[in-house]
Amino acid sequence: MKKGRVLIVGGGIAGIQTALDLSELGFYVYLVEKKSTIGGVMAQLDKTFPTNDCSI
């Protein structure tokens, strides 16, 4: 039996999306981030191209 847990290294937008999808696909996820918060670079952006939506 394979383990139902998955490790994700890096809590930026890619890590967050992988974590959300995997948890919904029925896996327990460890989301490891070296900083004090997840969000990565996208959390630093004022707005995003091309829709100029707020990033957070």
Binding site: V6, Q17, L22, L25
Partner: peptide, 30 residues
């Protein structure tokens, strides 16, 4: 790569994991 492509690859990685671990689906979740 940009945000849309990163988000796409992220979901793709989830699919890959879900393929190889399908027998363990819901075995460790709460």
């Amino acid at each position: 790569k940009d945000i849309p492509e990163s988000v796409t690859q992220a979901s793709a990685a989830a699919a890959q994991v879900s393929e190889i671990l399908k027998e363990a689906r819901f075995s460790a979740t709460i």
